[in-house]
């Protein structure tokens, strides 16, 4: 049986981790490759780098970072943020990423999903969807959650998969950073609507939230950031809670 994944996300800018983690203080920003490797040792099933930089210089640095990380990390690495074209996808993959996540560019040019999947395989194309609740459902936001679109999140998820997405990373903008728990309705609605794995993201505040992403949310994977970086919990503690709830996951201890 395929197991449920715990994915650790690191925000990077200019080749460094920009949010503090328990391994490093805020001023002495951490080396993402080093932090990724430490999370692998803790039992993380995958690592996501979210490149929050916008400048071309920062992009070149990110490719160097992917190269450096790929040489030290032996679990899958997904890279997202600022991917504009199939060429960008190819550059990240050649640098050593296993998967690339696309968001705003896919909203603006949905054929980017098909082009990338045809060229590199659906297994490396992750479509990232930032969604916020409305009175009638969930609306998709672009540009790092800053810009509302006309897209309904469930309909966009279905279309992205039809176009070739191999996975969906679904982030609740309402919950992101709140530590109030994932938006389980959003996660479950999308998980039931598509045939590819859905990664729940945004809002993890404790182990019970992570467990709920799998049980009530019906997600294939849960993405966790802040509560690991600040030392509130550990990958192992989260996985032990998953196992205690009967969720099958990779055991590394």
């Amino acid at each position: 049986m395929i197991t449920k994944r715990l994915i650790v996300c690191l925000d990077v800018l200019g080749g460094r981790v920009v949010k503090g983690t328990r391994f490093v203080d805020l001023r002495d920003q951490g080396d993402p490759a080093d932090l990724a490797a430490r999370y692998e040792v803790e039992g993380a099933d995958e690592i996501v780098f979210l490149d929050i930089g916008a400048s071309p210089e920062a992009r070149a640095t990110t490719l160097d970072l992917i190269r450096d990380t790929a040489e030290r990390l032996f679990v899958p690495l997904t890279v997202g943020g600022g991917i504009r074209s199939a060429e960008d996808v190819g550059l990240a993959l050649r640098a050593g990423a296993d998967k690339v996540s696309v968001n705003t560019a896919a909203i603006e040019h949905p054929d980017l999903i098909t082009l990338s999947a045809d060229r590199f395989g659906a297994q490396c194309v992750v479509v990232s969807i930032d969604a916020a609740r409305t009175d009638t459902g969930w609306k998709v936001f672009a540009s790092g959650g800053q810009r509302p679109t006309d897209l309904d999140a469930i309909a966009w998820a279905e279309r992205a998969v039809a176009l070739g997405a191999g996975e969906l990373l679904v982030t609740s903008i309402d919950r992101d950073g709140s530590r109030a728990g994932y938006d389980l309705d959003l996660t479950r609605r999308i998980a039931r609507a598509v045939s590819v794995p859905v990664i729940a993201s945004g809002g993890a505040g404790n182990a019970a939230h992570v467990v709920a992403a799998f049980t009530e949310g019906e997600a294939s994977a849960a993405l966790v950031a802040g509560i690991l970086h600040d030392g509130q919990t550990t990958v192992r503690a989260l996985k032990e809670a998953m196992m205690a709830s009967g969720i099958s996951t990779r055991r590394t201890w």
Partner: peptide
């Protein structure tokens, strides 16, 4: 229904010497 298979999957009925030596129980697939 869910393809590609992406993620860590359990190995069963393992008789392979190298897989056993490594104690590889759950492996990454795509």
């Amino acid at each position: 229904r869910s393809l590609p298979q992406i993620g860590w999957n359990q190995l069963e009925a393992v008789t392979d010497v190298d897989v056993r030596t490594a104690e590889l129980e759950t492996a990454y697939y795509a």
